[in-house]
């Protein structure tokens, strides 16, 4: 059963063909990686899923509903959460406050005028936030300013914020970009744990082959805006076209 269905999506920027006729289907409860060389259109494709870009042609269906023309916050409310290449968190707020916001958003919707309630009285939501932070191994940093966190912690916080909303589809945009090897491995372990413990579908864009082959169950290779091939990691590794187009001599 596919949860995300992309059909004939094309996108041009002026004369540049960023995507042409992309067809892709992400199966529920799998980890699906989208790889490809720089400029292959990976980020453009991801931006079409979350409402940042609207493709020129084609359709993007999430769970039977079109996401095209909807605002990012509406798409999030449908059940898609996104992790950015550089962690996007609320740097001015503390770690626990960062975690409360998505949980409020999940409970109260995109806007609610709760100006005379008190955050400190929302015991249930605070407990939930603490639980997620525990899961992210950040329970000792609750009241830290989130801007002061290390890169790896910021990434974990962002992933935690997305998970706290219990999304059905988690989109990861190069989650280990710019990370040291140890942090990368930690993130891989975290994502593996998430995948095992939750009913969640993950779509991941990644440069780092180590990350891709440790996590993905399905891989789509994108080159020059078109899917070259879609297969299991084992087959991708040995696929001649892929080796030629992307992996080169390194594998």
């Amino acid at each position: 059963m596919s949860i995300l269905e992309v059909k004939n999506v094309s996108k041009n920027f002026g004369g540049l063909k960023a995507l042409s006729n992309v067809n892709l289907s992400v199966v529920e409860n799998t980890v699906h990686a989208i790889i490809g060389p720089n400029g292959a259109g990976k980020s453009t494709l991801l931006n079409c899923f979350v409402g940042k870009l609207i493709p020129d042609t084609g359709s993007v269906m999430f769970d039977g509903q079109s996401v095209l023309g909807r605002h990012p916050f509406e798409i999030n409310q449908m059940g898609i959460s996104r992790v950015f290449q550089t962690p996007e968190i609320f740097g001015d707020l503390t770690v626990i406050e960062n975690m409360l916001i998505p949980i409020f958003a999940k409970r109260d919707g995109s806007f609610r005028m709760h100006a005379l309630e008190t955050v400190a009285n929302e015991a249930e939501i605070i407990e939930q936030a603490e639980q997620v932070l525990e899961e992210m191994n950040m329970a000792d940093k609750l009241h830290m300013h989130s801007a002061a966190l290390s890169r790896g912690d910021k990434r974990r916080l962002e992933i935690g914020m997305c998970l706290s909303q219990e999304p059905r589809l988690l989109l990861l945009d190069e989650p280990t970009a710019g990370m040291a090897r140890a942090d990368t491995n930690n993130t891989i372990d975290l994502l593996k744990r998430i995948k095992d413990e939750r009913d969640i579908t993950i779509a991941i864009i990644e440069h780092d082959m180590h990350v891709v082959f440790s996590l993905a169950e399905r891989i789509t290779v994108l080159a020059q805006g078109t899917p070259l091939v879609e297969d299991t990691p084992e087959n991708i590794k040995i696929h001649p076209k892929v080796r030629e187009a992307y992996l080169g001599e390194s594998v």
Binding site: F73, N76, E88, I89, F90, G91, D92, L93, I101, A105
Partner: peptide
């Protein structure tokens, strides 16, 4: 602090 994160957290 971060409007982009807000939008992608389901908040208008």
């Amino acid at each position: 602090s971060n409007q982009q994160r807000m939008n992608y957290t389901g908040l208008s």
